[in-house]
């Protein structure tokens, strides 16, 4: 039985298969609409995450399956002190597959050790969020036509942003990946990622503090939010925040084929005036996330089309 706890739990071959299946589903969703008839997805969400939970539930419903679960720890037996291990043992007898979101890092891994059904990590603290990475990869593959030989800019909070770390780890597996890392000094990518992944793998990368300067080089711009609470003082935040806000003027510096991705929710880091730009694909990205989750559910349940 396969679980997906980290984005790297899928081999390149397995990843290609999931992305290809997602592509087939995207082309003909009707063909897959009864694939999971009679199957149940348990969404065990120990903290609220509307988007991810609804995306998983939409994915299972699109496949003809059904869903059950809870959307906060307060409404689960965790409030009574039940361990993750006991919860998953019980849920294994109610459902066929589970998606777990938990504020504590490693909780889905603990669940996978004791589970009788496949466990998908739907986000554990600041640690992993593999289906967001799958969503990002599927978006890039669908809209760019490839995952290799791309220059990807990451902008904003590169220190704490788990989606950034996961996507870098995933993209270094494709040949010709180049990274441009745009952030204030306070929010640079962690040293371990720079040394153990980028430098150890001889992956070309460049760091910058000015978004406009590097925009022309980018195939993909992955935006993240710069949160006020990450700064030591408000002065620094006020000084720096505008440098990392994407607006229509900055978009003029970008190539005509550059795509803007964002894991959402967006707050103010992308001005709403950018939304109408055809290169802004973050809402399309959220939509594609449903298809790739459908493909992952089918794969982990061992179900093929028809």
């Amino acid at each position: 039985m396969k679980h997906v706890i980290s984005p790297l739990d899928l081999s390149m071959e397995e990843l290609d298969k999931v992305l290809s299946l997602a592509e087939s589903i995207l082309q003909d969703p009707e063909k897959y609409s009864e694939c999971c008839h009679g199957k149940k997805l348990a969404t065990l969400f120990y903290e609220p995450s509307t988007r991810t939970r609804l995306s998983f539930e939409a994915a299972m419903l699109n496949l003809g399956g059904s869903v059950l679960g809870f959307s906060s720890a307060d409404s689960s037996s965790a409030a009574k002190g039940e361990s993750v291990a006991d919860t998953i043992r019980v849920v294994s007898s109610y459902a066929d597959i589970c998606a777990m979101r938990h504020p504590k890092e490693g909780a889905p891994y603990v669940a996978s050790i004791h589970s009788g059904i496949p466990v998908i990590n739907a986000g554990d603290g600041g640690h992993n969020h593999p289906t967001q990475t799958l969503t990002d990869l599927f978006t890039i593959k669908t809209l760019k036509g490839r995952l290799d030989h791309l220059t990807i800019g990451f902008c904003g909070d590169l220190k704490f942003g788990r989606t950034v770390h996961s996507l870098i780890n995933a993209m270094v597996r494709y040949p010709g990946s180049r990274f441009i890392l745009i952030s204030p000094d306070e929010l640079r990518i962690p040293t371990y990622l720079r040394e153990e992944v980028l430098e150890a793998g001889n992956i070309p990368y460049q760091e910058s503090k000015v978004l406009e300067d590097v925009m022309p080089k980018l195939d993909i711009l992955y935006m993240t939010r710069v949160q006020k609470e990450r700064f030591f003082n408000e002065e620094d935040y006020i000084r720096l925040k505008d440098s990392f806000i994407l607006d229509a003027a900055k978009m003029q510096c970008a190539g005509k084929d550059m795509l803007v991705l964002h894991p959402l929710p967006r707050v103010n880091e992308i001005a709403t005036e950018v939304d109408d730009d055809p290169r802004a694909v973050y809402f399309r990205q959220a939509q594609l996330g449903v298809y790739v989750r459908m493909a992952l559910i089918m794969t982990l349940l061992g179900i093929s089309a028809g």
């Binding site: 361990s83 993750v84 291990a85 938990h102 504020p103 504590k104 890092e105 490693g106 909780a107 891994y109 603990v110 554990d124 603290g125 600041g126 640690h127 153990e196």
Partner: peptide, 21 residues
């Protein structure tokens, strides 16, 4: 020592580490 680790709330879990470098 990570306060966000599941071992910080589930006391019965064994503290287990893997050599990565």
């Amino acid at each position: 020592k990570n306060p966000r680790c599941i071992t910080s709330t589930e006391q019965e879990l064994p503290h287990r580490f893997r050599l990565t470098n």
